[in-house]
Amino acid sequence: MELEVSTVKHIAHLSRLELSDSELERFRGQLMDILTFVESLADLDLESVQPRVHAVEVTNQFRADHPHEPLGTEEVLAGTADRQGDTFRVPVVVDTEDVLED
């Protein structure tokens, strides 16, 4: 199956990956191999086969609404490189434009 470089770039962007041109080419090839492999399913007669959403046939697994002990703030934050107070700090992710003018 053919894959455009732009598609690979888009997928890389969605996964927040920065790829060099040679990497783009390399992954394009690998992705095409994967898709071609999956495409081989089209050779089968699947007319009477129902789509499946899961690999195993287990259904209706629930847990009771009972609380467990959380980790606790200190342990949760123990591995973070950038902590402020009791929170994780990350680069600013949102900004707003000025008020919409009529």
Binding site: H66, P67, H68, P70, L71, T73, L77, D86
Partner: peptide
């Protein structure tokens, strides 16, 4: 009482990151 997929309690206004597993 607890979250959708784990047993962490659901409460408002607690110490940040204290209801996490």
């Amino acid at each position: 009482r607890t979250k959708m997929f784990c047993g962490c309690p659901v409460r408002f206004g607690e110490r940040p990151n204290s209801l996490v597993c």
